[in-house]
Write a protein that binds this DNA or RNA. Structure first.
Lengths: 207, 207
DNA sequence: CGCGTCGCTGAGCAAGCGCTTAGGGCCGCT
DNA sequence: AGCGGCCCTAAGCGCTTGCTCAGCGACGCG
């Protein structure tokens, strides 16, 4: 995949951001942060990728950290919605867990650039922004834990340590963002399917 | 745990490094890199934590990157040895996998500060150093994959996708370094035991 | 046409960065 | 005592960083 194609794909994710220049900036920032990390990325690099001068960045965003916060915030909200949709759907705990992990892992693969930023650049957020994001993460964790708890209660799963298993499942899915590559042998769908299968085994459910 | 206790514990890990000042520097660098990330850490910060002036760093290490390389190199070699010891031990694939995951996950929990640096600051290495470390990582991956392949061949495990499952197991263990905290509710031993159990389930083995 | 507004640029500031250099105190050896 | 070598510091160099600001062209409106 060429750099231009990657940029085009990435910008679709931010179609809600206007005006156009602000969208190009946030899309450029995601790519730069994912490649080099927040601290190694310069505002000149972001502006350059978006085809603008360094000063133009500050018309749309107050600081470089605000860009990271915007990315982190939308990304975490999306992740929470994915988990929420699966958790609130009907069906057995097995069905809900399979759907949750499949969709959650799949998202981290397909949007691995954004996911890498929101999962591995958290510490660069200011204290207030960090606290806000941490709240979203706790809510995601609670949703998943409830599914696993439901399955343990109903006898569908055999789980000794519900919080520990929840942590492991979340960790497994999140870490997809670190190793996934669009040039690799696996599609996001395949990752989702594999991970749903592995997680159902982890909780002692019937695949 | 106080900062002083953390420093003392960390320095034991580097007891092979001499002279004393070089050891204090590498230990300080590990802590700083783990807390803030490589790029957000300044040489003044490292030297300050080690109780020295900024210039003293350059008597023992040519560059800041060399410090990261030394940390990464020793850390990855240790991780490889842990995996190798379990892989080359006798016993069934089940026994070897259990021991490998228990020890590997346990190490990532106990040495989470070092592990965080070696697993999540890789991209800050120069190209040559990165290539060298990537070789160590591939060897670790091969050792684990062989154990899982052995178990699949012998019928002890039921695994559809051996490379994919290997990747997931490694990812799970490595990510311990991201979330583990010494102040949290779990000891490294407990993490090792939990993870060994979860992984045996993932491969469809008998716990 | 005249004029304000919006989006942007070129130039640059203060601060902080990785790293260097000149020199000083202390040690063991002769 | 004299001296070389080892560690260390104070000072600072050249450069890059996040961010600012004065001003400019294009556009819509009267």
């Amino acid at each position: 995949m060429s750099a231009a194609e990657r940029a085009a794909e990435e910008s679709g994710e931010w179609s809600g951001v206007t005006p156009d220049a602000a969208r190009r900036l946030v899309s450029a920032a995601v790519q730069a942060f994912a490649e080099r990390g927040y601290h190694a990325t310069t505002t000149r690099d972001i502006a350059g990728r978006a085809g603008m001068s360094p000063a133009a960045l500050y018309i749309h965003y107050k600081t470089k950290e605000e860009l990271l916060y915007r990315i982190s915030s939308t990304g975490h909200e999306k992740a929470l919605r994915i988990m929420g949709a699966a958790a609130e759907a009907g069906g057995s705990a097995t069905d809900r867990l399979r759907d949750a992990v499949r969709a959650f892992a799949r998202w981290h693969a397909e949007h691995h650039t954004t996911a890498r930023v929101i999962q591995y650049e958290l510490q660069a957020l200011g204290p207030d922004h960090y606290a806000e994001i941490a709240g979203l993460r706790r809510r995601t964790d609670r949703l998943l834990r409830q599914i696993i708890q439901d399955g343990a209660d109903s006898g569908e799963f055999r789980v000794d340590d519900v919080p520990g298993t929840t942590l492991a499942v979340l960790s497994l899915c999140v870490d997809v963002a670190r190793w996934f590559s669009a040039d690799g042998p696996r599609t996001p769908d395949e990752v989702g399917a594999l991970y749903a299968d592995l997680v159902l085994r982890m909780v002692g459910g019937s695949v």
